[in-house]
Amino acid sequence: MHNDNTRLTQEIIRASGVNPSKCMKCGKCSATCPAYDEMEYHPHQFVYMVESGDLEPLMNSKSLYKCLSCFACIDRCPRGVEPAKLVEAVRFAVIRQQGADHMTPDDVPAKLNEDIPQQAIVSAFRKYRK
């Protein structure tokens, strides 16, 4: 399967620590998922889409945010694939896309406010992939 997402795929695999090729396509993750009906792409498809580098539809899908991170799939996967960790890594890949920086250092002083937790500013100030 040809795609140009090799680098991104590898990054997601590295960041999540998940090896999708361990998947034996039994579908127990999808069988166990409580948010299944809310999803366009289901946990087993998730794993396969990352494995085959078919990332774009996944990154554009709301399914990413339907995962409750209940980790039932991680607990029950017979091969130790840990699909929920992949979901998390793909979410980050979406959030931290290049040029998606929310603010520059110059914006910081104006935002300082006693009501805003510092963590929020730190998060918003994150570097979004060079």
């Binding site: 039994c26 579908g27 127990k28 999808s30 069988a31 166990t32 299944y36 289901h42």
Partner: peptide, 26 residues
């Protein structure tokens, strides 16, 4: 084609939640 994710006893029934990978259904 698929696995059973969980079985929950409810009344005199066993609720079986499983995936059908070919129909892509739960």
């Amino acid at each position: 084609k698929g696995m059973v994710g969980k079985v929950t006893p409810e009344g005199d029934k066993l609720k079986v939640q499983a995936s059908d990978l070919i129909a892509n259904k739960q």
